[in-house]
Design a protein around this nucleic acid. Structure first.
Lengths: 118, 118
DNA sequence: ATGTCGCGTTCTTTGTAGGGCATGGGGCGA
DNA sequence: TCGCCCCATGCCCTACAAAGAACGCGACAT
């Protein structure tokens, strides 16, 4: 029995899923597609965008630069041209540290709650 | 004989001189003054802005971030808040390297010219 | 099986708030 | 008279959001 198309396609995410994951509007993702040639996902026959995990990594990089670091779109674009893949590594590290920070803040709150309860 | 006021004042640059140095309009400098609290030069009795070399360093930092790196104004502002003085050092290094690069490009051109002439 | 109703999601195209200055007017001191 | 001051207003893109059409899918009736 050959693979059903659905099974193959589920390697991909829809634009709505990506939008939800980053809490942005689909229109923003489509707009960035016009601004960053790196962000050109496959499309289904119907024309729907199909995002691979790699596509999502690229989106995350752009999101980080534009929304978290405050780059303009040309600024982010230039940086990606030069630094390309190195950038992903750096951002992964940053995001790991950010998670750790959040964890520690939570811990601190709980510790504060305990010490006050006494 | 006491210092004449001119001698003291000539420690300073006018907005026009600063504008010329960076090849920007005075209106841009005034506008950035409303956006970056770090960029608030002294003013003469008359109200004219008096830029010290330190003020110019601050302007250079902003110029570098906004015009050369492609940060938005809020992005540059946030970066200056956190990194403040460290940033100046980094930018000094970058600008030195940039000068060296230009020098080397010039050298290369001359070398090319020589090798072609033969 | 087949029509179709409605809902959610997607598409592309068009509209738009506001970010980032520039310009113009009126005034002042050297 | 020149160069700077301070507003106020003007203005052009940037960076999206909204509008409107089309599609896919389940439910329900035919």
């Amino acid at each position: 029995m050959p693979y059903k198309e659905r099974d193959i396609e589920k390697q991909y995410f829809t634009i709505g899923e990506v939008a939800a994951q980053f809490n942005v509007a689909p229109s923003l993702i489509r707009f960035w597609e016009t601004e960053f040639e790196e962000l050109r996902p496959r499309k289904s026959k119907k024309g729907n965008r199909l995002y691979t995990p790699q596509d999502i990594d690229i989106f995350r990089t752009i999101y980080h630069l534009v929304k978290e670091r405050g780059y303009t779109i040309p600024g982010a674009r230039d940086l990606m041209k030069q630094k390309g893949p190195q950038l992903k590594e750096k951002i992964d590290v940053i995001q790991s540290l950010e998670k750790i920070r959040k964890f520690m803040v939570t811990m601190k709150k709980e510790l504060d709650a305990i010490s006050k309860a006494q």
